[in-house]
Simulated scan of single mutants.
Amino acid sequence: MEILSSRTLLRPRDYEVTLSFYRDVLGLAIAREYPGGTVFFAGQGLIEVTAHGGTDLEFRFPGALWLQVRNLSDAQDELIRAQVPIVREAREEPWGLHEMWIADPDDIPIVLVQIPEDHPLRRDLR
């Protein structure tokens, strides 16, 4: 499959402490802020600190790999053909992205994301 972008998602136990660490201690520049999270530039990658999910994680890894795909349905078909288990079926999230979850062989969660044409991520050119 063609991967268009990626980021590492962190779901900390204490959002404010983690936000301060990446912003103030490490001095990472903010790429984007949204209700419930902050995305930082990290060299050629991004680190997203989310304000949700830190206490009742579904997975033992306290984050996920975020991989943007061009077409989620095509990616899902590819994964099914490759016999990769789908952890969570594709669906539109309340924040407007289309997401599907899988895991790597070490059970590191991977979220495959399709950004709809009308989503702010496509229109925001900052």
Rank of each mutant, 00 (worst) to 15 (best):
V25D: 10
V17N: 11
H52L: 10
L97E: 10
W66S: 09
L19M: 06
A75T: 15
A51H: 06
L79W: 02
A31T: 01
H119K: 08
D106K: 09
P120I: 07
A82K: 14
F61K: 07
L57I: 08
P109G: 10
T8G: 07
D107M: 12
Q44L: 10
R13C: 01
M100N: 05
T55F: 05
A64C: 08
R7C: 11
H52Y: 12
L26V: 10
F21M: 07
E58Y: 06
W101E: 11
L46H: 13
E48T: 15
D77E: 14
D104R: 04
H119P: 04
Q83F: 01
D77M: 08
P62Q: 08
V25W: 04
L112I: 04
E92G: 08
E93I: 01
P85D: 08
G54I: 02
D24C: 07
R7V: 00
S20P: 00
Y22H: 07
Y15E: 04
S20C: 10
S20A: 15
F59S: 14
Y15F: 15
I102H: 03
D104F: 05
L57C: 09
L65G: 08
A42L: 13
G96Q: 03
Y22P: 05
I30S: 02
G43D: 07
S6I: 01
D106L: 12
A31I: 00
R7K: 13
E89W: 02
F40I: 00
D14W: 01
D107W: 03
L28V: 03
I3A: 14
A90F: 01
E33Q: 15
P35K: 05
D56A: 13
W66C: 10
I30C: 05
R7F: 06
D104Q: 06
E89A: 15
A42H: 09
P62A: 09
N71A: 12
L65F: 09
W66V: 06
D104N: 06
M1P: 07
I86H: 09
D106Q: 14
E33L: 09
A64Y: 02
W101F: 13
A82Y: 04
R13I: 06
L67T: 00
E92D: 14
I110D: 02
M100H: 04
Q76C: 13
H52S: 14
I115P: 00
E33V: 12
G53E: 08
S20N: 14
E33K: 15
L67S: 02
G96S: 02
L72D: 05
A82S: 11
P116R: 08
D74M: 09
R122H: 10
E92S: 12
V111E: 02
L112T: 03
Q44V: 05
G36Y: 05
N71E: 14
E89S: 13
V84L: 11
V25A: 11
D107K: 13
G43T: 03
P105C: 01
H52K: 10
R122L: 08
T38L: 12
M1V: 09
P12E: 09
L26P: 03
S5E: 12
V17K: 15
D124R: 12
F59P: 00
G36K: 06
P94C: 09
G53D: 04
V69T: 03
E99S: 13
T18H: 01
G36F: 08
G53H: 06
E58M: 11
D104A: 12
L125T: 11
L79R: 00
P62D: 09
L46E: 15
E48N: 14
